[in-house]
Structures are given as structure tokens and as C-alpha cells.
Simulated scan of single mutants.
Amino acid sequence: MSQHPFLLPADPGAPFPPAERALRQPDGLLAIGGDLSLPRLLNAYRHGIFPWYSGGQPILWWSPDPRTVFRTDGVRLPSRFRRTLRKSGWTVRADHDFEAVIRTCAHIPREGQQGTWITDAMVEAYLELHRHGHAHSIEVVDDSMADGGRLVGGLYGVAIGRMFFGESMFSAESGGSKVALAALAHRLHDWGWPLFDAQVENDHLLSLGAVLLSRPEFLSAIAVLVDLDSPAGHWRERFGTLPASTLADVRPSG
């Protein structure tokens, strides 16, 4: 295994090195440099690689081992939260305001975190992915507001074939991100998509039902899923509108 990350050439169509060559320390660092062009990003996700870096750093590309994923029939909401959710007036939709979701993810304060890894360049790159129907936002809206609703939670990520690669989520009200996550899982399960990516483990994701796959397991799974037929395009109509209260009775299988 190489002891240094691979330096990407300027050509956005150039291949990435195999993800198996990623470093053990820091876990998953594979490559450095390149750009955030649409073909480069799609090529990265297709091979289980994603960009993650802070302002002032070069672009860093990662493929951690193990990989954190959700099975779409495996999201687990806490019992107390389910009871609250049954009375919720929130609704969930997709791709109505992708830019608001990604900018909120970039700027919302997070405990123990200073600044953001969602740089201006990242925002512009994912807006471009969204314009081409590859990046999607899940939006949780409080319909009780007089102005027609405001975002109380959401997430965004990239879809290729029948695989969704989650990038970031936020809560503006308690539980907003949980609802977005559960709604995404519910819709993807209905569509026959078995997994979605959550990248790196943390206690919060594990408490909601995330599981860990070894890098070989993850790469083997997505190699099939990204080639399954599911055309790119916005999800606004396909996802529809989902009352958050209906998620209270969706239980994980097994």
C-alpha cells in the first residue's frame, strides 16, 4: 500500500486509484488535488470515493474502512420520538430548495465543530450536480407556518443508479434530521434501493440503525447498485409529499 495519497492529474476524466490503496492513517485518505467538476465527482462516487476537506486545504478524497451505511429498511427511530411524531404537522418533500438545504448544512452550528467543510467551492459543485439531476435534497417543512412552511430539517446527497450517497444533514428544530433520514429510507425502500451511504460512523448514526461494512463489502455492493437502471433527474414529483406522522409506524425489519 502506498504511504502517501495519490496526486490527481488535472484532467477531470482521469481515473482515481483503486480505493483499496487508501491509507490506514488517516483512515481512508486516497488522493489529493484535482477539481470538483461534475465528471470527477460522479466518477468518485461511482467508485466509493468522496471529497472532504476544509477551507485552505487542497481537495482531499476519501474511502474509509469500514464504511457507515443504512439499510433502507433499517432506520430506527427512538420510541419517545415516534410518539411525538404521530402528532407532527411536518411534511417531507424533495428537491424543492436544494440550495437552502446545502447552505444550511454548511452554516448551522454543530457541537464540537468550528467552521465547515462545506466550502463555497463545494456548494457550487453540488449545485451543479443538482442542476444535472444527480444531487438531491430531502426537506422537512413545518406546514403550520403562515408563510407556507419553513425548513426544520433536511439532508442532501448524490444518487447514481440505485445508490444514494448521503453527504450532510441538519436540524433547525429538534428531530428534523431524523425525519429527513427516515423519509429518505422509506422512499428508497419503496423504490427498491437497498442501501444508502452515510460515510463515517458516529454514535448518533449508529443509534439510528446505521451499520458498518468493510471496504470490500461496500465496494462490492455499490458496484452492482450504481449500474442499475434509474435515470438521473429531479425527485420533486417522484418523491411526492410525505406526512412526517406516517413515519412513526414504519419499523425496521429484523
Rank of each mutant, 00 (worst) to 15 (best):
L205A: 04
G209N: 09
G240K: 09
L188F: 09
W235T: 08
D227S: 15
A244Y: 08
V226L: 04
G240Q: 07
R236L: 13
W191I: 07
P216Y: 04
V200R: 13
D203S: 13
D203F: 07
P194T: 05
E217G: 03
A244W: 08
F218N: 04
P194A: 00
V200T: 12
A198M: 04
H189Y: 03
S220C: 11
L195F: 05
A210E: 03
G192H: 04
N202D: 11
S245C: 11
A223Y: 02
L213Y: 02
F218Q: 05
H234L: 12
A221K: 14
L188P: 11
V224G: 13
H189Q: 13
W193L: 03
P194C: 02
P243T: 03
A198C: 10
G209W: 08
H189F: 02
L208T: 04
R236I: 12
H204V: 07
F239W: 03
S214V: 00
P216H: 06
D203A: 14
G233I: 05
T241K: 03
D229Q: 14
D190H: 11
G192Y: 02
D197C: 00
R236C: 13
D203L: 10
F196D: 00
Q199W: 07
R215N: 08
F196E: 02
V211N: 09
L242H: 08
S214Y: 07
P216T: 03
G192Q: 03
S245Y: 05
L219T: 05
V226R: 05
R215I: 09
E217V: 00
S245N: 08
F196Q: 01
D227N: 15
Q199E: 12
L188Y: 03
G240M: 06
P231S: 15
V211C: 10
A221F: 07
L213M: 10
E217K: 04
V211H: 11
R236Y: 12
P231I: 14
T241S: 06
R215W: 02
D190C: 11
W235K: 07
P243N: 00
W191F: 10
E201R: 13
P231Y: 14
L195C: 01
L205M: 06
E237F: 13
F196T: 02
F239Q: 01
N202T: 01
A232E: 14
E201P: 12
Q199M: 04
R215Q: 12
E201A: 14
T241D: 02
F239D: 00
F239R: 01
I222M: 01
S214N: 06
D229A: 15
N202L: 09
D229F: 06
W191N: 09
D203I: 07
L242K: 06
H189N: 14
A223K: 13
V211Q: 14
S245M: 06
A223R: 14
T241W: 03
W235Q: 09
L242T: 08
A232R: 15
N202V: 06
V226Q: 05
P216S: 05
R215P: 04
L228D: 11
D197P: 06
L205C: 01
S245G: 05
D203G: 11
L195S: 00
F218T: 02
L225S: 02
E217R: 07
W193P: 00
E217C: 01
V211E: 15
R215K: 14
F218P: 12
A210Y: 07
L219S: 02
L195K: 03
G233T: 10
W191Q: 12
A223I: 10
F239M: 02
L228M: 15
A244K: 05
V224L: 14
D203Q: 12
A198R: 10
N202K: 08
D190N: 11
L206S: 13
D203H: 11
